[in-house]
Design a protein around this nucleic acid. Structure first.
Lengths: 344, 344
DNA sequence: GCGCCCTATGTAAGCGCTTACACTTGCCTC
DNA sequence: GAGGCAAGTGTAAGCGCTTACATAGGGCGC
């Protein structure tokens, strides 16, 4: 097809413009350090040759890539999208570029992606949750690549972090559910293995139950991947139990929407027959019918703050703080109601 | 914090292992070309130093990056996620890495991202839709980076492409709507400016109307960004018209779900009072209540086929075909019904 | 026992860029 | 008119890697 003629290089441009490579380089990076007339000739040559600088070479020579990497579990749903978008916008304003990779919730893949992004010159990393092999943190340390953990908060960790407390957020929701008279609770959780957010949310419910004097062991838990379909199946399973729960708390909105759909299919009225809650407050939650009661997470704020913190660290400034905890808040919509009277 | 001691390089590893850099390089790239004993020593040194090869340097020396770039309008909704996921999985199996960038539907940003990905060594590009400045195609040609266009199909273009015919898909949907007696149609479209898919879908409706002997000019069109909220607002606007449409065809499922929500808020029964249709058949469509009638797009197949085609081109094989058109199909769920009798 | 070939390794030349440093002008100051 | 300075440009040394080519042993056939 197209011939593999070599791409134009800085040197080609320099020749064409009749200047040295240094001058061309300066034209590209510090235009005001070059005389107007020279700059014009160079720009002209660049255009004619269709020159585009080679990023790898540039990074190698300048030892800067202006690149940040983000590694998220999945792009298939909107959970991480909003926060990431905000993160990216903020980075961009500071001249940084974002590289995104996804792991499919698989720790091995995550490890690979981390190495890959670092090798690609990511100067900092945006990660979801704390839980990962210590070797990975060591690796990042030896490479001196700062990593910032989001979507979680744990003052006990020394990691740079901008997030929220999954456990207390979920505990708050559970308390609200309990306050409405529910006594038999169930949870549809993401796989808690290797996912500290999911584990923390589960712990939050148990904590609230204990605080209310209910045996945490009575919580029925089903683990499901983060898809609508899986949420639906999990809900069906829960409802088939001998003594089904009157309130089903879901690990996130995607699962909750699946549960909601299945309730509809099973001709269960929500919240009359059963209450359902979510977590995240993504757009989906507002759109569901009936409107989904959920935990609002300030995704945009989180993304923006994460970017600012990371940039501050990279520039050697002391960041405003190494660990920032953002507040979540309950959003009570229609899927949460009082426990059915017969169950009170 | 961490000291900025320089990262270990190939040479450091070579010193530590008491071999030459060439040997270390071979160890990393062609392990079987190296004696077992040497390999062990090198692996050891690699581990001890926490060495990780510099991607830029490697790319520059080897002139291969094994990287493909994808540029999509947005990550904020699931529209592109599924196809992209499939694309990535397929790439991965062939040893390629995917770099993703998003444009926010802005042509300028897209141009930047294209250049940025090429500069980063993308050997091929995955693009959405045909419409973009010819200079960009020229640029890619001079850089000899093959670009593959998806989410659209137009045999008249010479671009490498794996997609579907937006116009006839939407025409088919419109015909289905018309067959149910609807005569006053409306469309909620994405901004058609710079978005050939949106424009083609609009054209499809008009074509179907013309074919049915209805003046295409009677189609009421509102353009809206691709968000649920915007879809809701657009729907409200349409319903406030003097003689509102009995069927509202939406440019995609996200808009349709917004319309559906607004219908609910306005106490309009769907499909009794008004029919609503979407496009894409993302998970959201199945979950909406009532179930959304939409056009199913084979996203996964598209992503996978796109990857295979692009890889074939990169390897110099003739691809199975330069242009592959995938079939779409109508999915009739509950939001499409007969026109209200008084309107027949 | 000589020559040949094969395998394992080393040597060194780039890949395309940035940047410290050196150099040349032209202008200003005294 | 000499000295100093600033602005614009060139020279050349890397950055960390791959790889063509050179080299050194060892095993084998005859």
């Amino acid at each position: 097809m197209t011939f593999d003629r070599p791409l134009p290089t800085l040197a080609d441009v320099a020749d064409a413009a009749g200047v040295s490579t240094a001058t061309v380089s300066r034209c590209l990076n510090f235009p005001d350090k070059v005389a107007e007339s020279t700059r014009k000739r160079v720009d002209q040559a660049v255009k004619e040759l269709g020159y585009s600088p080679n990023f790898g070479a540039r990074a190698m020579a300048a030892k800067r890539t202006m690149t940040i990497g983000a590694i998220i579990p999945t792009m298939e749903n909107a959970i991480f999208a909003r926060g990431l978008q905000a993160f990216q916008e903020e980075l961009r304003q500071h001249g940084y570029t974002l590289l995104v990779a996804s792991t499919g919730y698989d720790p091995m893949t995550e490890a690979e992606q981390i190495k890959s992004l670092v090798a690609r010159g990511a100067e900092g990393l945006f990660l979801i949750g704390h839980e990962r092999a210590p070797e990975l943190y060591d690796f990042l340390e030896t490479q001196s690549v700062p990593a910032l953990v989001t979507w979680a908060f744990d003052a006990a960790r020394r990691q740079l972090s901008v997030g929220f407390d999954n456990q207390s957020a979920m505990a708050e929701m559970a308390a609200e559910v309990l306050a409405r008279g529910h006594r038999r609770l169930a949870m549809i959780a993401a796989a808690t293995q290797g996912n500290d957010r999911a584990a923390a949310r589960l712990a939050g419910i148990k904590q609230a139950m204990a605080d209310a004097g209910i045996l945490p062991e009575t919580l029925q838990v089903v683990e499901a991947p983060y898809t609508i379909e899986a949420g639906a199946q999990a809900f069906a399973t829960l409802m088939k139990a001998a003594n089904p729960a009157t309130a089903v708390l879901c690990g996130n909105d995607v699962l909750a929407v699946g549960a909601l759909r299945m309730a509809h299919e099973m001709r269960l009225e929500v919240p009359t027959d059963v209450s359902i809650t979510g977590f995240d407050d993504i757009e989906l939650a507002q759109v569901a019918t009936p409107g989904l009661t959920t935990v609002h997470v300030p995704h945009r704020d989180m993304g923006r703050a994460a970017a600012r913190t990371l940039i501050a660290v990279l520039q050697g400034d002391t960041p405003p703080c190494r660990q920032l905890e953002l507040p979540t808040r309950l959003v009570i919509r229609e899927t949460l109601g009082p426990a059915p009277t017969k169950d009170r």
